[in-house]
Write a protein that binds this DNA or RNA. Structure first.
Length: 586
RNA sequence: GCGCUUGUAGCUCAGCCGGAUAGAGCAUCGGCCUUCUAAGCCGAGGGUCGCAGGUUCGAGUCCUGCCAAGCGCGCCA
C-alpha cells in the first residue's frame, strides 16, 4: 500500500515538473508513513514540506497542487491536506477489509516476504566457552540471536545459525586441569583446589564419570603434582601463575594423549549439555564450528600467511604483530606471542576468513557488549584479508542484571555461583524467558527480577499475548458447542459490517504486521515485534470486552469470526518467530 | 586520560533512519463478572525527553559542549 501511494505521488510530482511548477532536477525522497493518529487518515506524507523550498512556494499551496495532480486509485477513499502541509490518505472501507482475506489465504505464511531475495546470511550467536553450563547472560544472546535469525529467514534470507565452539585456549585448559584435580580427589587424594579453577559441581560430576569409566589410569600422586609449583593466591602467590603451572604439570605428567582424554571428557560433556539446554530453549543451530579444528587444520597458519602476504605483519619484541592501527584500530595487535603460541585473535581472524570463504553475503555476530572494543580489530582483519568489512555486522547484547527482589545476584562462572539458563527456564518457563529477553532493545541493560518472574509470573506480558490467542480458540470451541458451523465465505462477504472502531483498530493493526516483521528483521530489533504483539493482544482484549462475537445474526457472526481468526493467525505467526508457544487454552 | 554505549512518567522501557496534542507496562487511585476465560476491560493522576547552545518551516530524534552511569582500553579469552 505504501508503495502504491508513493507511485501515485511520484506521478503527481512528474506532472508538476511538466507543468513547470517544479524544477526538472528535483529528486523527491518520497516518504509515506502510517499515521500515528487515525484522525490523520491511514497514511500521510510530508512531501509538500520537503519540496516547498525547491518549488519556491509555501507547503500548503504546493500540497494542493500535488493533490490536484494525484491519480485515482480504488483503495484511496479521499485525500486531505492538514497541519503545516501534510497530505493525508484515507483508505476505502473495502481495502481496509482485504487484510482478513489476505491472512486467511496466506495462513502461517502471512507476514513473510522475499525482501532478502535468498541472500545467504550467517548468524553466529551464544558461542559461550564450553567451560560450564550456560547462564542467564548467555540466555539473552540466545533468545536475541535466535529471534534475529528467525526474522531474517522470514524476510527472505537464507540463514545459517552457527555456534563457534571455543574448544581451544587457556580457559579450556583450566577446565581440563580442574577436571583432573577433581578426578584425583575421586581417587582419594587430598588436595587444595586452585583459586582459579572451575569449582562448579558439574566439574566433580565429570571427574566422577571419568573415574568410573577409565579407572585410576590418570592418577598421579599429589606430591609430584605440586612439586615446585609457584604458590596460589591464598598462600600469597599469584593465582594466574599457579594455575598456568598446574596446567603445564598436568600436560607433562599425563602426556599429550591422556591429557587430551581428560580434556575431552570435560569438553564433550559440557558441550552436549549446552546443546540440550539450547534446544530445550527452542534454539537450534545448523552448524557447530570448532575452534580447535581451525588450528589443527592449519587455518590459523594460513590466515597469518595471508595477512603477511598483504603486508600487514611485523615482528617486535619477539612477537608477531598485525598492523591493525593502519585500518582503524586503536593499536596494533599480537597474533603470535613471543612463546610461539598464537593468540585468540589469530584464531578469530582464521575463523572469519573461513566464514568469508564459505560464501556468505553477510555475516552477523552476536556478542556480549563488553566485547565492543574488539570490533575494530576484527573489521581491520577483514579489510586486510581483502574483504569489505561492511559484510560483518556485530550486534551487541548487554548482559542481564539479575535481581532477587532488591538484592543484586552476583555471578561468577568460576566460583560456581551463578544462575544457569536451565534454572531460569525451570523457574519461569521457556516462553516467559524467551519473550522477556527480547522485550528490550538488545544493547540496553536488562533488569531481570527472578523473584518477580517466579512468584508472580502472571504479570509477565507473554501470558497476556498467549491469553488473547487462547481466548480466540475458546470462542471457536463455544461456537462448536452451540452447534453453529462457521461459514467462512459468508463472513468474507459480510466484512463490511465490521464497523465498530475497535474492529477497525484491529484491521489496521493486522495490516501492519508484514511491515513490523520487515523492520524488525532489517534493523535486527525483535523488540518491535514483541511490542507489536502486545498491542495487537491489547486491541483484541478491548474488542472482546466490547463486542460479542457469537451473535445470532449469522452474517455478522461469521464476519467477526473471520476477523478474530485473522488475529489468532497473526498472534501465532508472530509468537512463532520468537519461538514462544501459542496455547489453545490457558 | 582516550574510545564506545546510554540518560524519556515513581519503577522498567518504547518512540518506526526530523513531523501533527510525547506512548506502553508495572505501581497508585476509582469503576466493570447471572452473557464468548476478570491471566481481561474502562477511567484518573503522573513529563523542563540529563543540562546548555546550534542546525530549520518543525528536534525526544541531527551537530557541539558539559554533567552522570555502564562497558572497553593485555603477548587473557
Amino acid at each position: 500500500m505504501k508503495r502504491t501511494l508513493e507511485n501515485l505521488l511520484l506521478g503527481a510530482v512528474n506532472a508538476l515538473k511538466l507543468a513547470g511548477e517544479l524544477p526538472d532536477d528535483t529528486d523527491p525522497a518520497i516518504a509515506v508513513e502510517r499515521t500515528r493518529d487515525s484522525q490523520h487518515g491511514d497514511f500521510a506524507t510530508n512531501l509538500a514540506m520537503t519540496l516547498a523550498k525547491a518549488a519556491r512556494t509555501a507547503p500548503r499551496p504546493l500540497a494542493e497542487k500535488l493533490v490536484a495532480c494525484l491519480g485515482q486509485h480504488s483503495a484511496v477513499d479521499r485525500v486531505e491536506i492538514a497541519g503545516p502541509g501534510f497530505i493525508n490518505f484515507y483508505l476505502s472501507a473495502e481495502s481496509r477489509f482485504e487484510v482478513v482475506q489476505a491472512i486467511h489465504a496466506a495462513g502461517h505464511q502471512y507476514g513473510l516476504s522475499r525482501h532478502g531475495n535468498g541472500r545467504r546470511v550467517q548468524v553466529e550467536f551464544v558461542s559461550a566457552n564450553p567451560t560450564g553450563p550456560l547462564h542467564v547472560g548467555h540466555g539473552r544472546g540466545a533468545a536475541y540471536g535466535a529471534a534475529v535469525a528467525n526474522l531474517l529467514q522470514a524476510t527472505g534470507f537464507e540463514v545459517q545459525r552457527e555456534y563457534y565452539v571455543n574448544d581451544a585456549g587457556r580457559q579450556m585448559d583450566i577446565l581440563a586441569t580442574s577436571v583432573w584435580l577433581r578426578y584425583l580427589e575421586e581417587c582419594g587424594a587430598p588436595l587444595v583446589f586452585p583459586a582459579n579453577g572451575y569449582r562448579g559441581d558439574y566439574v566433580r560430576a565429570i571427574a566422577a564419570e571419568l573415574h568410573q569409566r577409565e579407572g585410576e589410569r590418570f592418577f598421579k600422586s599429589p606430591v609430584t603434582v605440586w612439586q615446585d609449583l609457584p604458590p596460589d593466591e591464598p598462600q600469597g602467590g599469584d593465582r594466574e601463575q599457579h594455575i598456568d603451572a598446574l596446567i603445564e604439570r598436568a600436560r607433562t605428567l599425563l602426556g599429550d594423549a591422556d591429557y587430551r582424554i581428560v580434556f575431552d571428557a570435560g569438553l564433550t560433556r559440557i558441550l552436549a549439555d549446552i546443546r540440550t539446554d539450547l534446544s530445550e530453549f527452542g534454539v537450534d543451530y545448523q552448524n557447530w564450528y570448532s575452534e580447535r579444528s581451525l588450528a589443527e587444520g592449519g587455518a590459523v597458519q594460513r590466515a597469518i600467511e595471508t595477512l603477511d602476504k598483504a603486508g600487514y605483519l611485523y615482528t617486535r619484541d619477539g612477537a608477531l604483530w598485525f598492523a591493525s592501527s593502519r585500518l582503524g584500530d586503536e593499536k596494533d595487535r599480537v597474533v603470535v606471542r613471543d612463546n610461539g603460541q598464537t593468540t585468540y585473535f589469530a584464531s578469530d581472524i582464521a575463523y572469519h576468513l573461513d566464514k568469508l570463504e564459505r560464501g556468505f553475503d553477510a555475516l552477523i555476530n552476536v556478542w556480549g557488549a563488553d566485547h565492543h572494543g574488539y570490533i575494530p580489530r576484527v573489521k581491520a582483519a577483514l579489510t586486510a584479508l581483502g574483504a569489505d568489512p561492511e559484510r560483518l555486522q556485530v550486534l551487541l547484547v548487554q548482559f542481564a542484571v539479575l535481581w532477587r527482589g532488591s538484592e543484586k545476584v552476583q555471578m561468577s562462572t568460576r566460583s560456581g555461583e551463578f544462575v544457569t539458563l536451565r534454572q531460569l527456564r525451570n523457574e519461569i518457563g521457556r516462553d516467559a524467558a524467551r519473550f522477556f529477553y527480547v522485550l528490550r532493545k538488545s544493547d540496553q541493560h536488562l533488569d531481570f527480577d527472578l523473584e518477580l518472574a517466579a512468584s508472580n509470573s502472571n504479570e509477565n506480558p507473554v501470558y497476556y499475548i498467549q491469553y488473547a490467542h487462547a481466548r480466540i480458540c475458546s470462542v471457536f470451541r463455544q461456537l462448536d458447542e452451540k452447534g453453529w458451523a462457521r461459514d467462512i465465505p459468508q463472513g468474507m462477504q459480510a466484512l463490511s459490517r465490521l464497523l465498530d472502531p475497535r474492529e477497525s483498530a484491529l484491521l489496521t493493526r493486522l495490516a501492519r504486521y508484514p511491515e513490523v516483521v520487515e523492520t524488525s528483521a532489517l534493523n535486527y530489533e525483535p523488540h518491535h515485534l514483541a511490542h507489536y504483539l502486545r498491542e495487537l493482544a491489547h486491541e483484541f482484549h478491548t474488542c472482546y470486552n466490547a463486542v460479542s462475537f457469537l451473535v445470532d445474526d449469522a452474517e455478522l457472526r461469521n464476519a467477526r469470526l473471520n476477523l478474530i481468526a485473522a488475529v489468532r493467525q497473526v498472534l501465532a505467526n508472530g509468537l512463532s518467530l520468537l519461538d514462544v508457544s501459542a496455547p489453545e487454552a490457558m
